[in-house]
Simulated assay, not measured.
Amino acid sequence: MSSLGSLAGHRIVPVIVIDDAAQAADLARALAAGGILCAEVTFRTPAAADAIRAMAEVAGFTVGAGSVVRPDQLEAAHDAGASFIVSPGFDREIVDLTRERGMGSLPGIATATEALVAMRAGIDTVKFFPADKLGGLGTIRALAAPLQGLGFVPSGGVTALDAPTYLADAAVPAVSGSWMATRSMIASGDFATIERVSTESVQAIGRV
Rank of each mutant, 00 (worst) to 15 (best):
R99C: 04
I123Y: 08
A145K: 08
A131V: 13
V117L: 15
V126C: 08
D91H: 10
A82I: 02
D72T: 03
A142N: 01
G136W: 13
L137H: 11
G102R: 05
Q148A: 13
T139A: 14
G66D: 09
A80I: 01
S105Y: 09
S87Y: 03
D124E: 07
P130L: 08
A145I: 00
G138L: 03
E114L: 09
A144H: 03
V126Y: 10
G89I: 10
V68W: 04
V117C: 09
F84M: 01
A80N: 08
G136V: 05
L137Q: 00
A121K: 08
F84W: 12
R70I: 03
A115E: 06
G108M: 06
H78K: 11
D72V: 05
M103R: 09
T111Y: 14
G81H: 01
T139H: 11
E75R: 14
G81P: 00
T125F: 09
A121Y: 10
T98N: 03
E75T: 12
M119S: 12
R92Y: 05
A131W: 10
M119Q: 15
E93F: 10
D91Q: 11
F90Q: 02
I140W: 07
G108V: 04
T125M: 05
L137A: 07
L143T: 06
S105T: 11
L116E: 13
P88S: 09
V68C: 00
D79H: 14
L97G: 03
L134D: 09
D91T: 06
A76K: 12
E114K: 11
D124F: 05
A142Q: 02
R120N: 15
K133I: 11
T125G: 01
S67V: 07
T113L: 10
A82L: 07
A131I: 04
E93N: 13
I85C: 00
L137W: 11
D96P: 01
S67D: 02
A144T: 02
P88M: 04
G89M: 04
L97H: 06
S83P: 00
D79T: 14
A110Q: 15
E114R: 09
L143W: 10
L106Y: 14
F129K: 01
A115R: 04
A110N: 14
T98P: 07
A144C: 06
F128T: 09
S67L: 02
I123L: 10
R92I: 11
V95S: 08
T125D: 02
S105G: 08
V69I: 12
G136P: 03
V86M: 08
V126G: 05
I109T: 13
L106V: 09
A121G: 11
G122M: 07
F84T: 00
L134K: 07
I123A: 05
P88C: 04
T139I: 00
T113W: 12
A115H: 08
P130G: 12
I140N: 02
A121I: 00
D132L: 03
A76R: 14
A142Y: 02
R101H: 13
V117S: 15
M103S: 01
T113C: 12
D132F: 12
A76Y: 05
P146R: 08
A121H: 15
G122P: 05
A76W: 04
S83W: 00
L143E: 11
M119C: 01
T98R: 07
A145Q: 12
D132R: 13
A80T: 05
F84E: 00
D91A: 10
D91V: 00
E100A: 14
